[in-house]
């Protein structure tokens, strides 16, 4: 078993558990098992078969993009953490002249 720490907004789909246990020999398999156990998570973590681009997964302190990604092997007792990238922005690209009010 490995553990996965769930980001606060998605704990609604894990019965408010912050940390859940799953099975998997790789990170990809562990995340698949997570979405089998908690199916409502899937649409927020995946787009099709790919992780959404704002979903980051850490093994310990390491972003899995700097390891072997979803193919990274896991040992029993490893700890994963899902962290969303926060991003936002207004519609349109036009730049409004900066006329700061005094």
């Amino acid at each position: 078993m490995v553990t996965i720490r769930i980001p606060s907004p998605l704990r609604a789909y894990t019965g408010e558990q912050a940390v859940v246990e799953v099975d998997g020999a790789t990170i990809g398999a562990a995340l698949e098992d997570l979405t089998v156990r908690y199916p409502e998570l899937r649409q927020h973590l995946y787009e099709g078969q790919e992780l959404r681009n704002f979903v980051n997964v850490f093994l310990g302190e390491e972003d899995i993009r700097f390891l072997d990604g979803l193919d990274t092997g896991l040992d029993a007792g490893d700890s994963l953490r899902i962290i969303p990238s926060i991003a936002g922005g207004r519609a349109g690209r036009e730049r409004v002249p900066p006329l700061r009010q005094e």
Binding site: P9, H44, P84, G88, G89, A91, V96
Partner: peptide
Amino acid sequence: HSHPDSPAIPSDYDREHALPNF
């Protein structure tokens, strides 16, 4: 977050990067 010189209405970019229950 702010929308400089733009309405306080979520954009498609906001939605694509958003989570429920937040």
